[in-house]
Design a protein around this nucleic acid. Structure first.
Length: 474
DNA sequence: TGAAATGTTGGGGCG
DNA sequence: ACGCCCCAACATTTC
């Protein structure tokens, strides 16, 4: 090791400088810091980055690169097998220590193991993406929690996080090394450029994340507990993609929420952060969570293979307004309101009886906040096969959900404009509207807007029968 | 972080 | 005046 050998700082799901334990540990070595990000494009199989996530990553990396440059360090970009690249960097620079954030993702954990055996230095895995270190929150018996509420209570008993680490004003950067060009990674879509809706909706990067958090906490969080369920209102934090890429520390968020607000809205928001924490631990303990139902009985589920129905669901052409509105919001903006995610997921897995993995794969490709643990954990939850899962008989009625949570129909009208002429009641069930009402709204079902691809009552009954058929047989 | 079916109750129309 | 019935409105059970 040469005297000016760097400490390597390996960014993964923590593309920020504030409250970054690995960054601080790297600086504390007293050595120059060599920041690196590695794009694993091919090694990830079906869980390689989705198209929407690639768009976000491009802009997030550009912001991180600039923030590092402003403080005196140059971000090095590499593409390929992480373990081989880290080993190569260590050999090339003589570094003894590599600092990175720990990940629940099983592929990342494999890589960490491989790295550990490939070089003589030390891989330091720090907590950067979660509130508590993975696997640190355990039951009295030392095991993992399988139910959310006791898990959340255990987290709350630990108490709020300590003082966050400040972003360093300057970083002594290591001698520059070879870097690929971000622009060559082709993370942005072209031919066609479908990202216009994303650009209008989001500002990726640490500054954008903090601005979003500030704007959210400016709201009256007293109302959050109820307005967060209204997709037609700006009631949610919309921080999910920023959290996914680690542009803001979840610990900082927790603290901001505690310092700035109080009451029921704050507690509800904290519990949302804890769902994220729960899913990360769930994946940590169940590496096959994205593919295999936690409840083995679901291996016998009589799922349907219906490509046409899946396609209609993906493109927002099911003929069920709240479902189509949600799926179109996802397609246009890379994001969907949480309440509507539950509705469309219930519709896919129950009314259409299509495997939850198909919905998971679509969300993975189209969500800017696509996160392996959250996506898998929540799809399993909706399908009823996960930890602490929704009971199998809990089937959302999309018409009733629409009327309850989008009472004015504003959300449907925004994303399904062909129904804009309908009144609040009929906009959620156009097939029930009298002919003269449809005519006045210039709607011809089957032409200007689809007939429902399934009878809701029949679909519900079919789902209950299917779910009952796999029950009890252990 | 459900919905539908079924049961119960009480007010009011009506013979 | 009285009993019968209907049916909201609410509660409970069932899926």
């Amino acid at each position: 090791m040469t005297s000016d050998a760097p400490a390597i700082l390996w960014f993964r799901n923590d593309l920020r400088l504030g409250d970054h334990a690995a960054l601080h540990a790297a600086i504390d070595t007293g050595r120059p810091v060599l920041p690196v990000f590695i794009l694993e494009d091919d090694a990830l199989g079906s869980w390689g980055l989705g198209a929407a996530s690639r768009w976000w990553l491009h802009h997030s990396l550009a912001a991180l690169r600039q923030a590092l440059a402003d403080r005196g360090a140059k971000l090095s970009l590499r593409r390929g097998d992480s373990a081989a690249i880290i080993a190569d960097l260590v050999q090339q620079t003589g570094a003894a220590d590599v600092f990175t954030g720990e990940c629940a993702d099983p592929r990342a954990r494999q890589v960490d193991l491989a790295i550990g055996s490939m070089f003589g230095g030390t891989l330091h895995r720090m907590r950067t993406a979660t509130l508590f270190p993975l696997n640190a929150v355990r039951t009295k018996n030392g095991g993992p929690f399988s139910v959310y509420t006791p898990f959340a209570n255990a987290c709350l008993a630990i108490g709020g996080p300590k003082e966050p680490l400040p972003a360093p004003a300057t970083i002594r950067g290591a001698q520059e090394i070879e870097s690929e060009r971000l622009e060559d990674w082709c993370l942005l879509p072209n031919r066609p450029d479908w990202a216009a809706g994303l650009r209008e909706s989001w500002t990726p990067g640490e500054a954008g994340a903090m601005a979003r958090a500030e704007a959210f906490l400016e709201l009256d969080l007293e109302a959050y507990a109820t307005t967060r369920d209204r997709p037609g209102e700006d009631g949610t934090s919309m921080l999910s993609p920023h959290l996914r890429f680690g542009e803001i520390s979840v610990r900082v968020l927790w603290r901001m929420a505690h310092l700035r607000t109080g009451g029921k809205g704050r507690d509800t928001f904290i519990r949302q952060l804890l769902w994220r924490e729960f899913c990360a631990n769930l994946l940590w303990h169940n590496p096959t969570l994205p593919e295999v139902p936690l409840r083995p009985a679901f291996g016998r589920m009589p799922w349907r293979d219906d490509k046409a129905a899946l396609r209609a669901w993906q493109r927002g052409q099911t003929g069920v307004p709240i479902v189509d509105a949600g799926m179109r919001q996802l397609w246009q903006t890379g994001w969907m309101h949480n309440r509507v995610r539950m509705i469309v997921a219930s519709f896919l897995t129950k009314h259409l009886l299509i495997p939850w993995q198909d919905g998971e794969a679509w969300f993975w490709d189209t969500l800017v906040d696509a996160d392996l643990a959250n996506n898998a954990g929540n799809w399993q939850w909706v399908a009823g096969c996960g930890a602490d899962a929704a009971p199998y008989f809990r089937v959302f009625n999309p018409v009733l959900q629409g009327r309850k949570f989008d009472p004015d129909g504003d959300y449907v009208r925004q994303f399904v404009p062909e129904l804009a002429g309908l009144d609040p009641r009929h906009v959620h069930a156009p097939w029930e509207a009298p002919p003269d009402v449809l005519a006045a709204a210039a709607i011809t079902l089957g032409k200007t807007y689809p007939n429902p691809i399934i009878d809701l009552k029949a679909g519900r009954t079919r789902a209950l029968d299917a779910y009952a058929s796999i029950r009890s047989i252990a």
